[in-house]
Computed example of a mutant assay.
Amino acid sequence: MHTNNRQSMPYQRLAEMGIVLPVSPAPVANFSSHIISGNLLFLSGQGPVGADNSKQRGKVGRDISAEDAYQHARLTGINLLAVMHEALGDLGRVKQVVKLLGMVNADNEFSDHPKVINGCSDLLVGVFGKQGIHARSAVGFSSLPDQITVEIEAIVEFE
């Protein structure tokens, strides 16, 4: 299959970053990993789950540093990319990352939520360039499923 430059660019950037997309994680409850409505792709929340199915757990600001949680958000972004790839068949179809909701399993005194979720945001801008720049919320929660450190959901426009 011949792909144009725009279609191959996200994969080229991933390769340059040394990232191999995993198989997208399966939903853990009664929901779908994604829904397409019109030209919008709604991605369910993903977490920091490794290719070996290991999960990053803990309270950010108490058990986990903001710097480590940044890496967990980056890993979560890789999982979001895996779902995008599965849903769209080609990351080159992404026209715009529209919005992220980043949730941090945070200690009550923790206040660097945006710094943590930058792990995902920086990755998406690195992969998609200006199409990766998005609106975003980065908020703290008293707990997340299975005590994972971060969960991030996304809305993506595609063609």
Rank of each mutant, 00 (worst) to 15 (best):
G45A: 15
G129P: 06
A51S: 12
V104T: 05
N79F: 12
L80G: 04
N105I: 01
N53C: 07
P25A: 01
K95V: 10
V98I: 12
S121H: 07
R57E: 07
N39M: 09
R93A: 12
G61I: 00
S54D: 08
G89W: 09
S143Q: 08
E159C: 06
V20L: 14
I36H: 05
L123P: 01
F158V: 09
I133M: 13
G102C: 02
G140Y: 02
M103W: 06
I117H: 06
M9L: 15
H72P: 00
E16S: 07
P145M: 05
F31L: 13
V49W: 10
V23W: 07
A138C: 14
A69V: 00
I155N: 11
A73Y: 11
A138S: 15
I133C: 06
V98M: 12
S32D: 15
S8A: 14
G129D: 12
V60K: 04
G61E: 08
G58M: 09
V98P: 02
V156Q: 10
V94N: 08
P145G: 03
G126T: 03
V49S: 05
E151A: 14
G38V: 10
L80E: 03
I155D: 10
H34A: 15
V23Y: 10
R136L: 06
L80W: 02
N108K: 13
S32I: 04
G102T: 00
C120N: 09
A73H: 11
